[in-house]
Nucleic acid binder design. Structure first.
Length: 595
RNA sequence: GCGCCCUUAGCUCAGUUGGAUAGAGCAACAGCCUUCUAAGCUGUGGGUCGGUGGUUCGAAUCCACCAGGGCGCGCCA
């Protein structure tokens, strides 16, 4: 039997259906599902097979259902099958079918739930990708966690996944950063220029005033002394120093970013630099490539209807025919002065990813980039001849609160809550888990108090507590029996016949749903489903545990009944394995005990 | 003005890609600690799934229109 009990039963249903409908079309077969029933009174699993095949079979759903019931009633592991409603076939599984799953889970370990759904499909997940202009903040954090968990769950579903970070180290933003670092440098060597005086000298003003650049200024002073501020090099002659200062500052910022990511438990495989990409001439090459396909022209865009910018004037630009691929308007690749737009660089970057052989490109972006998705999808379609897919996962804003009150901003960063502040406050695991307790495209409130609360209200705690309780039981069992006797491998051989109480079966049903849950989360690009699954799983476990409160004979460890004890240990050990499997996807470390 | 996302219990949110009588937590109410296991557990009440049409065996889910909220809208990244 496979790991996935639902997939196994679906095979049985298809065998039965093919017997009843000999020339069943493949596309109909593909629509056949076996799902958990919503109402336990309907049994354990239900299939829509009769309804979806009725038209092709030219028979009434009820008639096919009746035939399926006859077949499935005899099938391996099925205790009872019945037709219901408009043509559902409900199945009640023999408890032995669920029991048979426990050794499989115990032997699989954290690999339980792995599927081959995405086998052979190469996916690139790009996330975080912040401008290296300051410390990572709460907005980056959500993207980091969502992207990382998404990549993990895709890998669990068998996709070949690369985790990637795109360093936006080109353009005006990093030039402004260099100016700000230079200001801190002047302070470090004792400049008389005030903040306002300096800002007046800089094109675009002083944009990054946070204190985090003070160490950078000091480091520049230590390395260069006053050399960067000599009469011929000073503020009036930026060309002489700005490249050096910019590179130095970007390096310093990226070092910080790497530290933050490491503390968050994010390890990406590839870091791509926009600056390096531009320097290689990739942007122009990509524009040429599109031009060769006739997708580039010089033109003038209409102003947006209803809201014309104040300084609007029509100017000729190099435009990409994104409207041919579903976008609303054509998009500029070159500014009116002839230089490339960010979009042009980003197309080049995505072209680079395509050249590296990915089938699906997923960008995890902030919601403010929503308007960007259609044009990038158009570009990927154009570059790949429609054979490759671009997808975006948009993360809505996160508000940090404490006890319902907004949290003030960070002094160090100037205007926002930094990731490292958040990590100091609640720790990696609570941050990651909490970030995954909402659908990414819904706004969320992150309550610092609730993330640390030791109540059922806090899913992080509730799930960790379940795992800790199981580990505690297993430690006690090792004392009572022996460590070897309660190892997962030994428990996999236990006689499980005594497992038949409803709460035990409920827990086993939940365990059986893990592979399809992980697969569904991967296909829907919704890693938050893992958090909800684990919460439900923890709930089933706690319910079982609590039976022992009123009736001591229902506790897991029974000195005078070793066989029952081992069966119960196998069940809870398999639960712990499944919790670890889920937490691994989320990047959360399971705890051995609550302290 | 246009595009994208969102609207589910008093509150915060799920809802297994179109399935059966829409679910959790919190809050409210009623119970449970001399007990190996109360950071917890059991039970009760609470809904026009924003609205109106449509598609079909079946719609919270898909489509159209409307209302409310968020984000974005040439040479920023």
């Amino acid at each position: 039997m496979t790991q996935d009990l639902y997939a196994h039963m679906r095979e049985q249903v298809l065998i039965a259906l093919r017997a009843l409908v000999p020339d069943l079309p493949d596309d109909i077969a593909a629509r056949v599902e076996v799902t958990p029933t919503r109402d336990p009174a309907h049994g354990d699993m239900a299939t829509n097979a009769a309804m979806v095949s009725a038209k092709a079979a030219r028979q009434a759903p009820a008639k096919i259902a009746t035939g399926l019931v006859t077949y499935l009633g005899e099938a391996d592991g099925v205790a009872e099958a019945s037709a219901a409603g408009p043509g559902f076939v409900n199945m009640r599984l023999d408890p032995s079918a669920y029991r048979g799953l426990l050794p499989i889970i115990l032997r699989a370990g954290e690999a339980y739930g792995d599927t081959a759904t995405g086998a052979g499909i190469r996916v690139n997940v790009e996330y975080v990708s912040a401008n290296p202009t300051g410390p990572m903040h709460i907005g980056h954090c959500r993207g980091a966690v969502v992207g990382d968990a998404l990549a993990n769950v895709l890998a669990k579903a068998g996709f070949e996944v690369t985790k990637e970070y795109y360093i936006n180290d080109a353009g005006n933003q990093v030039t402004a950063l260099a100016w700000a670092a230079y200001w801190r440098y002047l302070q470090a060597i004792g400049t008389p220029l005030s903040e306002e005086e300096f800002a007046n000298e800089v094109p675009g003003g002083l944009q990054y005033r946070g204190e985090y650049l003070i160490p950078v200024g000091n480091a520049l002073a230590a390395q260069h002394g006053t050399a960067l501020a000599n009469a011929d090099l000073g503020i009036a002659a930026p060309d002489a120093w700005i490249d050096r200062v910019r590179d130095f500052t970007i390096d310093a910022m990226m070092k910080e970013t790497h530290i933050d990511l490491a503390q968050l438990g994010v390890q990406q495989h590839v870091f791509s630099s926009e600056r390096a990409l531009v320097a290689s001439g990739a942007s122009d090459a990509t524009i040429d490539r599109l031009a060769a396909d006739g997708l580039i022209y010089e033109g003038v865009l209409e102003p947006p209807k209803g809201k014309t910018p104040d300084d609007w004037e029509p100017r000729p630009q190099t435009l990409f025919r994104s409207t041919q691929f579903g976008d609303d308007v054509d998009r500029p690749l070159r500014k009116s002065d002839g230089s490339n737009t960010y979009f042009a660089n980003d197309i080049a970057y995505h072209a680079d990813k395509l050249d590296r052989g990915y089938d699906i490109l997923i960008d995890v972006l902030g919601a403010d980039h929503g308007g960007y998705v259609a044009r990038m999808r158009a570009a990927v379609k154009a570059l790949s001849g429609g054979t490759k897919k671009f997808e975006a996962v948009l993360c809505q804003i996160v508000h940090i609160v404490r006890g319902g009150q907004p949290v003030r901003m960070s002094k160090r960063a100037g205007s926002y809550v930094t990731l490292s502040d958040l990590l100091d406050e609640v720790g990696k695991d609570a941050v990651r888990f909490t970030m995954l307790t909402r659908n990414a495209d819904a706004q969320m409130e992150f309550d610092l108090d609730k993330a640390l609360a030791t109540t059922r209200e806090n899913p992080v705690f509730y799930v960790q507590y379940a795992h800790a309780r199981i580990r505690s039981v297993l430690r006690a069992a090792a004392e009572m029996l022996s460590p070897a006797a309660v190892a997962d491998a030994a428990l996999a051989d236990a006689n499980l016949d005594s497992l038949q109480a409803e709460p035990e079966l409920a827990l086993m049903r939940r365990l059986a749903a893990w592979p399809r849950t992980a697969e569904g989360a991967a296909l829907a690009r919704e890693p938050h489903r893992i958090a909800f699954f684990l919460y439900d799983l923890a709930s089933d476990f706690h319910m079982l545990w609590n039976r022992g409160k009123d009736d001591a004979t229902l506790r897991f460890l029974q000195k005078d009944r070793p066989e029952e004890t081992l069966a119960r240990l196998a069940l809870v050990a398999a639960t712990a394995v499944t919790i670890r499997s889920g937490l691994a996807v989320m990047g959360v470390t399971p705890v051995e005990e609550m302290r």
